[in-house]
Design a protein around this nucleic acid. Structure first.
Lengths: 146, 146
DNA sequence: GTATCTGCAAAACATTTGCAATTCT
DNA sequence: AGAATTGCAAATGTTTTGCAGATAC
């Protein structure tokens, strides 16, 4: 069972608990992030919700996501310049972006693997770990061709 | 002694070795990255070199940096959206960005600290590790005020 | 009825592209 | 002369801002 989906049974109540008024747009955007762990961009979210909310504008998505980030219920992933992505998973984990297919995989980090005595007098608020390369699937496709 | 500065004695020769024709602009841009380990943006480089090269354009800086990245002599740091930074240090290391003063600190990572058995069938080409928070200096300033 | 939220249009900003002028050999 | 480099102007794409209308309590 998905730990995040398991935690959030009632999206409206969850948003309220975090000081966010649960409008229809906000609930649908958060629901999309919960149910689609694809680290979407604003454009991806927009295209996905357009059918359900024909009057939806990207401004609302930007506003909403910025609110969610401020309230600490989603996090921002910046891997490529000009391609900001978002996710509802707030547990420490890493990412792998395949440069062939563009997909972003989650990487589980059991315990915090980094020795950070260098930063003992620093206040760390966010940890970001990601890799780039070619995923298993794309590597297989490449060898199958030859 | 700085390991990177130590390695590159003759910038022109170094660029040639890496298949880059050493124009004056290119040498100055690479020299700036070598001598100023501040992970600058294009704008920072532009402002720094404008006095020396009054006709310099940002297009040339973008072209040059993209060439350097392709040839593998510099790397790109993307921490904030819409703020791409560059550095000449090609050794594996992490970064810490202070959200107060904006400075980016280098973090030494002795050996590769991450267990990546999950990615054993993936081809990893780049590893990125960075943190955000408040640096020692800004924390001290805050406590001094109170 | 007053606050907030939404969404259009325009602005802001970083980066890329087209192309002409310049430089180098 | 010929090929690569430079740099201006315009285009592109993402995100933000100003503001007016809609919605909610």
């Amino acid at each position: 069972m998905d730990p995040v989906l398991n935690e959030v049974k009632d999206i409206g109540a969850f948003l309220k608990e975090n000081g966010i008024k649960p409008s229809y747009q906000r609930m649908q955007i958060y629901k999309f992030l919960l149910e689609n762990r694809i680290h979407p961009t604003v454009d991806t979210i927009y295209k996905a919700l357009c059918d359900d909310i024909p009057t939806l504008s990207k401004t609302t998505i930007y506003n909403t996501l910025n609110t969610f980030v401020e309230k600490g219920i989603i996090s921002v992933i910046v891997i490529e310049e000009n391609e900001t992505r978002y996710e509802a998973n707030m547990q420490l984990h890493g990412h792998f972006k395949c440069t062939e297919c563009g997909q972003i995989y989650d990487i589980f980090l059991d315990t915090d693997p980094l020795d950070l005595t260098q930063l003992k007098n620093f206040k760390i608020k966010e940890k970001h770990i990601y890799f780039k390369g070619i995923c298993e699937h794309c590597l297989k496709k490449a060898t199958d061709k030859n």
